[in-house]
């Protein structure tokens, strides 16, 4: 298991959005990856690939509002030996271009990087049509894809580099709002497929990714006051899942909570449940978006309404422990 607890932020501060960290890292690393070509479907000022585009205009193409063509072009570039990266809103690039992801990227197993921004309900006021809440499920259903959901600014930086260093198709999910820092300043521990243990505990394991990692740390702190020692895992890679970390969580803590800003079906919760059921069945409880669309509202109001909070995680932990 990678990750030392010394890298965890000691106090809860708001950091940059994961899309910003991704965009700045892409811009900074562009010179180190001369084969990288970035293609946009006219949302680069939202997904933050515009920073790369301004610095490397000969390796940046805006092909218009056409996600199917976007992903197809990425497949062609990769077939010709480039490393292509395409980004759009998570909802559009996974839903609109799904058959292109399947046929023009996954089936030939090409070196294409897919970045879906504006994930989850935390985008706020724009509402349900813009909220990618099924993207992780869809990406996990593409054979050979690596699927990554970073928790915060430092994690997103490290994930971006790991994505570029991985040979093969990767889906990276990033979010719109500024989010609490999980990791201290400096390079965050990050290895594809290896969960980061942020806090050890023996009563229950809180497993999360993306926006839900920070609330799990806060929930663990609150539970400690009740005498419950919660382990916290940042499961930034949904596929391939860290089965070793899951087995240890089940064996050593006997109860699990999975928290994610995603629909119940097919996300991290489903993947954890599938593996834990096989490795060592223990009670599992879930904090997620259930089976419903989002709506308009401020990010904070939506996070509260949809239960993406430390209080919900703590309540789920108590339930899971009671079911042991």
């Amino acid at each position: 298991m990678a990750g030392a607890s010394s890298s965890v932020a000691t106090k809860r501060e708001i950091g940059k959005a994961t899309r910003d960290a991704f965009g700045r890292t892409l811009e900074a690393l562009g010179a180190d990856y001369p084969d990288l070509v970035v293609v946009d479907a006219d949302v680069s000022n939202s997904t933050r690939t515009e920073w790369f585009g301004k610095k490397f205009p000969d390796r940046f193409f805006n092909i218009g509002i056409a996600e199917s063509n976007l992903v197809g072009i990425a497949g062609g570039l990769a077939s010709s030996g480039k490393m292509s990266l395409v980004s759009s809103f998570a909802a559009f690039i996974t839903c609109n271009a799904y058959d292109q992801l399947r046929m023009s990227v996954a089936y030939p197993h090409l070196n294409v990087k897919i970045v879906g921004s504006h994930a989850g309900i935390s985008i706020g006021e724009d509402g349900a049509s813009q909220m990618g809440i099924e993207d992780v499920s869809l990406a996990c259903s593409l054979p050979g894809f690596v699927v990554i959901v970073p928790a915060d600014e430092e994690s997103a930086k490290a994930a971006t580099k790991a994505m570029l260093d991985h040979k093969g198709p990767v889906y990276l999910r990033v979010g719109r709002p500024d989010v609490p820092k999980v990791y201290a300043a400096g390079p965050a521990p990050f290895a594809i497929g290896k969960a980061n243990q942020l806090r050890d505990g023996s009563s229950v394991t809180l497993i999360a990714n993306g926006l839900m990692v920070a609330p799990c740390l806060d929930a663990a702190e609150a539970l400690a006051g009740e005498g419950i020692n919660a382990r916290v895992l940042d499961m930034h890679t949904v596929k391939p899942i860290d089965r070793d970390a899951l087995r240890k969580a089940a064996v050593e803590t006997g109860a699990i909570v999975v928290a994610e800003e995603h629909l119940a079906h097919g996300g991290l919760g489903s993947v954890v449940a599938m593996n834990v059921a096989e490795l060592k069945p223990v009670p599992i409880r879930y904090v997620n978006l259930g089976d419903q669309f989002g709506e308009s509202g401020s990010p904070d109001a939506l996070i509260e309404k949809f239960g993406m909070t430390a209080a919900k995680v703590a309540a789920a932990a108590r339930e899971a422990i009671a079911a042991k």
């Binding site: 070509v37 092909i63 197809g72 072009i73 062609g76 570039l77 077939s79």
Partner: peptide, 13 residues
């Protein structure tokens, strides 16, 4: 679309 990708790769390279 794949063909456009190849043709753009030729241009980049």
């Amino acid at each position: 679309s794949l063909g456009v990708g190849h043709a753009l790769a030729a241009r980049v390279d």
